[in-house]
């Protein structure tokens, strides 16, 4: 469920980000509390809190004292921008490496993508 290739608190933050991007947590809505996340993911509450605070620092979440944490206005736009910047490294580079091993040219690859996308 969590991406184990990364420090746990970063995996927690990314899971919340995914929830924001797929509208599980719309802008302005509350996200799970530290203890709820810890119990659900079976991790230490301090680690869950560290993940949430990372998103507060990035401006993705806002803390309302005594109430909880909420998705900040503009969070979706911010996350999309950041993930687009990482898209090439995360997805395109490995894709092109595998394509090269299989002698698939960039042109063929583009055709495959177009075909798959129109299905």
């Amino acid at each position: 469920m969590l991406d184990e290739t990364k420090p746990l608190f970063i995996a927690v933050a990314e899971q919340i980000e995914d929830g924001i991007l797929d509208a599980t947590y719309p802008e302005g809505s509350p996200v799970p509390s530290t203890n709820e996340l810890a119990a659900f993911l079976r991790i230490n509450p301090a680690t869950a809190g560290k993940g949430l605070n990372r998103l507060v620092d990035a401006g993705v979440l806002v803390k309302r004292r005594g109430v909880g944490m909420f998705v900040a206005p503009g969070a979706i736009e911010q996350l999309r921008r950041r993930r687009r910047e990482a898209f090439t490294q995360t997805y395109l580079v490995p894709l092109l490496r595998e394509a090269a091993q299989l002698d698939i040219t960039a042109h063929e690859l583009a055709q495959m993508i177009t075909k798959e996308a129109s299905r």
Binding site: T34, N35, A38, A39, R42, N44, P45
Partner: peptide
Amino acid sequence: FFDRLLADYAE
């Protein structure tokens, strides 16, 4: 054990 420890430690 795990779940009860976590829940009680959180509170």
